[in-house]
Design a binder for these strands. Sequence first.
DNA 1: TAGATTGTTAATCGATTAACAATC
DNA 2: TAGATTGTTAATCGATTAACAATC
Lengths: 217, 217
Amino acid sequence: MFKKKNISLAVVRRLPRYLRYVEDLLNHDIMRISSSELSQRMGYTASQVRQDFNNFGGFGQQGYGYSTQVLYENLVKILGLDRNFKMVIVGVGNLGQALANYANFYKKGFRLIGLFDIDPQKVGKTIRDIKIEHIDKLKDFIKKNDVDIGVLCVPADVAQEVADIMVEGGIKGIWNFTAKEIEVKGDVVVENVHLIDSLMVLSYKLNEKLLEKERIK
Amino acid sequence: MFKKKNISLAVVRRLPRYLRYVEDLLNHDIMRISSSELSQRMGYTASQVRQDFNNFGGFGQQGYGYSTQVLYENLVKILGLDRNFKMVIVGVGNLGQALANYANFYKKGFRLIGLFDIDPQKVGKTIRDIKIEHIDKLKDFIKKNDVDIGVLCVPADVAQEVADIMVEGGIKGIWNFTAKEIEVKGDVVVENVHLIDSLMVLSYKLNEKLLEKERIK
DNA sequence: TAGATTGTTAATCGATTAACAATC
DNA sequence: TAGATTGTTAATCGATTAACAATC
């Protein structure tokens, strides 16, 4: 029933949003929903909703719609949230700390099991009961604990270097918060969060509006 | 020379990446580049590079390529970075602090001029020479200082409420870090950064690899 | 001028939307 | 059964790639 061909990234990027809406429905005790109703709430077309879900095998019921519970369980499975991936954060600056304290990750089944930094002032301190270790111990830790995800929150100039250590340790995926585009060999998966890019897109849109107003004048 | 029709969001989202690469070229004193060379470095096709740039009027030269300097200046202008937008951060928790200290924003011309929180413990403290004010003063501050961008780093359950205050104050754009989808009226621009969505996409990809391996066995 | 590379039109590819038969 | 809504095929739309004439 699961996985036919390759699912396009456009579809995959919509899945977390579906999950968010379905969770919301469950929280409001809404136990069934039609593709047309869901699409209206989310600003998609009903066609797109059905196409998206049918990429993973139909879990709707003709004449009835979708069971919110079934939808929820399937999305969790499709997104791999039931794997409870283990992760470590490397670079415990402001951002690293923010992520360590971000409760949403735990709710979604991700398990933070290690924190690493190079600053001796930080090593030994604890956040959420996890002791910050020196980055020298990163590679062995990943190996020993079979860590899945490395969260890269170090300064841009050492990003590649630290990514290399992660890969050598056998990391499976890197969540990259640095402005650098890191290179990894093998089949290590990288997901970039370029915050500054997102801000620049906002800036573009604001500038567009201003240009419009200036043209009208 | 600027702006023909509506540029697709797909193109806009590539612009910051172009800027990043062009900056890198400048840092290495590379003063000209062809679409084919740039495309190779970035993993695009040469066609796409030329199409993308030509959305904004041709700033290349036939037989020569693109001047890195000209490219840089145009990208800065297109993205509105020369507007030096004013911004405030609301919610000075770990994430808000991380953003306040994120040097890249200043380098790209964004000016942080205010910090706001509801916690009396935080009000009065300063970060980067900016005093944290109580959220009660947010609306007036936005009005008085003609703030462009509001960075929303508050807990999810008050996201909409705080967004409303921003809009009432006359904010032009909201950079939303909460997991909630906020609703704004008028022509306020919203750019969402759903961190958890990004992590779930990584999780999806990891799960996909694991399923593949399990199938082979 | 000859060579190189852009700007732009045309062709292709993929994603979204529409339509409808299948079926609960 | 009749009504509703899915699953799926076909049509449309938009974005990417290829091709080539224009021109530096």
